[in-house]
Every structure is written in C-alpha cells, then in structure tokens.
Nucleic acid binder design. Structure first.
Lengths: 92, 92
DNA sequence: ACAATATTTAGACAATTGTATAAATGTCTA
DNA sequence: TAGACATTTATACAATTGTCTAAATATTGT
C-alpha cells in the first residue's frame, strides 16, 4: 500500500475529481471547469492522482481523457477490510 | 465523510499507529516507544487520530489507553465501496 | 508554417504539517 | 505536599503542499 495513495486521497479537490470520474470519463478541461481554481492547479492535482495510479489517461486528439483506475480502489478497500475491517459489511 | 479523516490517514506514522492498535489496545507510551521520534511528536499524531475519530481513549491511572474506533473504518470501507467499488469484491 | 485550443511544466509564495525542545497538566505513592 | 512518572500543550522551525501566473509542449485546422 503506497504512501502516495493516501497522500493523494488527503485533498478534497482530488477526492471530488475522483467522484466526477465515477460518473463518466472526462477530459482534463471538463474536470477543471468544475472547480473554482486555475486549470493549472487542477492539472497538478491530476498529476498527483496519476502518480498514485488512481487514474489513467488516454490522449484523444488535443484532449486528454481521464478515467478511474478501479483496480487501485479495490486495493484500498482490501487494505481497510483486512487490517481494520472487523467483519462489518455483508453487502455495501 | 470528513476531511480530517483522510488527512489523518495520509501520514505513514499514523497508519502504523493504527496497525499497532489492530493487534491490541495500547497506552500512549507503549505506542510512542515503537517510533524513533519524540514522545511529544507521537502524542501529536495521537491527537490527530483522535480528532478524526479514528481512535478513542480511556484513562487508566497515569496511563491513557488508546483503542481503534472500528466503526469509522467501516465508514471508510463503505465510502470506497459505494463510490468507487465497481462490483469488485465478492469476499475480501 | 501559423494561429487557436488543450494541457502540462516551471517558478514563486503563502498555508499547512511533522518534528523538536521545554513547560504544563494529571496521577500515584511516600 | 513533594517527587516521580505519563502524557499533553506551547512554541518554533524546516519541509511539504496547494495555489497562482507565465511559459512550454502537443494537436488540429487553415
């Protein structure tokens, strides 16, 4: 379980980005316009998320499309379940 | 899902503390001696964990005993399952 | 090749954070 | 009440982080 993963999740803007990507894949611009901060700042957050392997990218012409890496989320869930879970959730 | 929760989890020393508490409840001193940093620094980390409601305390004479608050961990798991789970875990 | 659009990278700066030492608080026992 | 032990709180400081503006890179269409 990598340190960058938890640091990436620590910022509320980044968690919001992840939730946006839950609905559907989006380009960097589509993501950035959802926030009141500069595009460059959102781009920085996207870089953090990508470094933590929480998202993956694909270029589409001039756009870059972001999508969730659900595999990593399953690892997070497993981390909590195995270490701290304490038999709690039969069905999410 | 509170912001303090994720910020609390972002530090590796704090995650290590949580894992120690998985094994058994421990006093502040027992926890602190596991780390190469000053007792006061560990105490600060314990305060962060407590503020995030990840641990609870009980005074025992001159000692203060810490224990995991497993309820909050179940909330974390639920957070990830519902938002990002993507039908992945039949049995963790 | 040039201009327009999309996105990232570089550099600077204020805010937050992790750590340390020293002082304060709380508890026990003589 | 004094002294020892356990823990926290106060204060300071260096490191990290989130944000900004400006510049750089990449792609498309003319």
């Amino acid at each position: 379980m990598d340190d960058s993963l938890f640091r990436a999740l620590a910022d509320p803007t980044r968690r919001k980005i992840l939730e946006l990507l839950t609905e559907k894949d989006r380009t960097a611009g589509e993501i950035a316009e959802q926030f009141p901060i500069a595009f460059a700042s959102v781009s920085h957050h996207l870089g953090v998320l990508k470094a933590a392997d929480l998202v993956a990218t694909e270029r589409e012409g001039q756009f870059i499309r972001y999508r969730l890496n659900t595999t990593v989320f399953q690892e997070v869930v497993r981390y909590f379940m195995t270490r701290f879970g304490g038999e709690g959730e039969k069905h999410a």
